[in-house]
Amino acid sequence: MSAAVATTSTSDSTPAALETGYNFAYLDDQTKRMIRRAILKGIAIPGYQVPFASREMPMPYGWGTGGVQVTASVIGPSDVLKVIDQGSDDTTNAVSIRKFFARTAGVATTTRTRAATVIQTRHRIPEEPLAEGQVLVYQVPIPEPLRFLEPRETETRTLHALAEYGLMHVKLYEDIARHGHIAKTYAYPVEVAGRYVMDPSPTPKFDNPKMEMSPALQLFGAGREQRIYAVPPYTRVRSLDFEDHPFTVQRFAEPCALCAGTGVYLDEVILDDRGGRMFVCSDSDHCEERRAAGHRGTMLADGTVDGETTDA
């Protein structure tokens, strides 16, 4: 690499300068008003999918355009933003969206769950319990829980209007008939505040209990499907089940290989082509904080392990 190139190229580590020529947080204010009205209706009717006029965003559908529009409409200069993708702060999607808001809104960003006021997430709820005053914004691909059972929007809308959710119970029953248990492990349907059946977005069902009576406000944005919905704080969120087949979450046989955390959601990492593998926290910030606090998993590079002496 020539010295000339190195001196003229901008480094990724340089703090992003606030972009000029854009409104605060990218969206124009008429769009924000329209989204803000939809958010208020979503909060007033928990679990109901409010239609909204989703805009083209400078990223493709499927990369969180719904979540980005909700975040852009909610966020203010004093907010601290965290963005996670499958639990990780470090993946392309999370890094890009964090940079997007640092550049268009000049907001502070963080990877610490506790320090964030607005958390945009794809497919996980942080392990750290959320607090009052925090807003969790979900990126949602398919907001309609009944869509794969009934493809017509006109029909699913009527089913929601009549609270007719027998179809969903039949689907769960067929799982039991075929597999002996409810086989759905993610996007597991929930009933919100005793009325609407809602898709919690493709979070693992492991995270469903965290939605129940959460102190944080939960907002859901589906850009391509043009729907916004919400779960207010302290709201009942019940995972659908049967008396003789109660809802249960995934359990992991071993703790996180890096931080020895238990009771957390783990990702499987393939190490080689001879069956070698490890299980590590999906929530990267949670794992890092535990390691910083001195917790050691069996495969952490420094060789010390929680609860064992290290004079090997």
Partner: peptide
């Protein structure tokens, strides 16, 4: 400040309806 004042007012109304 039409943009930031509206944002602050919206957050107040959003929190009010959420709590």
């Amino acid at each position: 400040d039409p943009v930031l004042d509206a944002q602050a007012a919206f957050r107040a109304v959003m929190e009010a309806l959420a709590r």
